[in-house]
Amino acid sequence: MPLRAHLREFRNRLIYAAIGIAVGSVIGWFVYEPVFEALQAPIISAAQEQDALITVNFAGLATALDMKIKVSLFVGVVLSAPWWLYQLWAFVAPGLVKKEKRYTAGFLAAAIPLFAAGIALAWWVYPKAVSILTGFTPEGGSNFLDAQMLMTFTMRLFLAFGIAFVFPVVMVFLSWAGLVRTKTWLKGWRWAIVIIFIAAAMLTPTPDVVTMMSMAGPMVALYFGAIGVARLGEKRRDKKRAAAALDDAEA
């Protein structure tokens, strides 16, 4: 494919992805109220449990509108994830051989539900993180949570969990593509656990151990699960290579 046609295809895929995100954002605009109520619910619960003044504060004149736009865009990106991930695959696919296309299609098929699982776990962790962090408010004190800060906090939390859950799929992809042997992953398991806990501490926007363990624990399990899945594909590839080498020797 000529460079100009390649750039045209890239532009078209970007446009298609942007249209998908825009459609998702329109949906996000109409479901903003229930989404914001869900985000605010743990804060209201924390205020009732601690008998303290804890509330979301819209400091600026346009903060409420800005918050609605950001929430709508965030919902749009999450809802349209299968669509824009497909556009990425459709752009790369023409340059791949049949075997590589099969790997990338499998990668997307596994990455989407794992990303959703990470988002779901973040949704479970979010109320606990709010309860723990607001619990440090001194008795008699008030906690006015800036709306922009709250949005940044939730976006970091949800995206961190979603992206972290996709990494094991990358491991399997690299092993099945023959770029990394599973014994390499196994040899470095100690370092992997250390790195996972460091990454969990850095990616999660809260300093509490509960949130960090909620991310690190499943990531460790997924790490070893990915090694097991990668090993199955590696065994099949090794058998095919051995059979091909035997056929060549007999010939």
Rank of each mutant, 00 (worst) to 15 (best):
I43C: 05
I43H: 03
I44D: 09
I44H: 08
S45G: 00
S45W: 00
A47C: 08
A47R: 04
A47K: 05
Q48C: 05
E49F: 01
A52T: 10
L53E: 13
I54Q: 01
I54L: 07
I54N: 03
F58Q: 02
F58N: 03
F58R: 00
G60E: 12
L61C: 07
L61R: 11
L61M: 15
A62R: 04
T63P: 02
A64Q: 09
A64T: 07
A64E: 09
L65N: 11
L65M: 14
D66A: 12
D66C: 03
D66T: 09
M67L: 11
M67Y: 09
M67S: 08
K68I: 00
I69D: 01
I69S: 01
I69M: 06
K70F: 04
V71D: 00
V71E: 01
V71T: 11
V71N: 01
L73W: 06
G76M: 03
G76Q: 04
G76N: 04
V77C: 08
V77Q: 03
V78L: 12
V78H: 02
L79K: 03
L79E: 02
A81T: 13
P82D: 02
P82W: 04
P82C: 05
W83Y: 13
L85D: 05
L85H: 05
Y86L: 15
Q87W: 02
Q87V: 04
A90G: 07
F91M: 05
F91H: 10
V92F: 10
V92K: 10
L96V: 06
L96F: 07
K99S: 10
K101Q: 12
Y103K: 02
T104F: 12
T104Y: 06
G106D: 05
F107M: 02
F107L: 01
F107R: 00
F107A: 03
F107I: 00
L108T: 04
L108G: 03
A109Q: 03
A109F: 02
A110I: 04
A110D: 00
A111L: 06
I112L: 10
I112S: 01
P113A: 00
P113K: 02
L114P: 00
A117Y: 07
G118S: 05
G118Y: 01
I119Q: 05
I119T: 08
A120R: 05
L121M: 13
L121F: 08
A122G: 09
W124A: 15
V125T: 10
V125K: 02
V125E: 05
Y126I: 03
Y126P: 03
P127L: 00
P127D: 01
P127H: 01
A129I: 14
A129E: 10
V130S: 04
S131M: 13
I132C: 09
L133S: 13
L133D: 11
L133T: 12
T134Q: 07
G135Q: 09
G135R: 09
G135P: 07
G135S: 10
F136E: 11
F136K: 12
F136V: 11
F136S: 12
F136W: 14
T137K: 10
T137Y: 11
P138T: 10
P138N: 09
E139I: 11
S142I: 14
S142C: 12
S142P: 08
L145C: 14
A147L: 12
A147C: 14
A147R: 06
M149H: 15
M149I: 13
M149T: 15
L150V: 15
M151Q: 15
F153M: 14
T154M: 10
M155R: 15
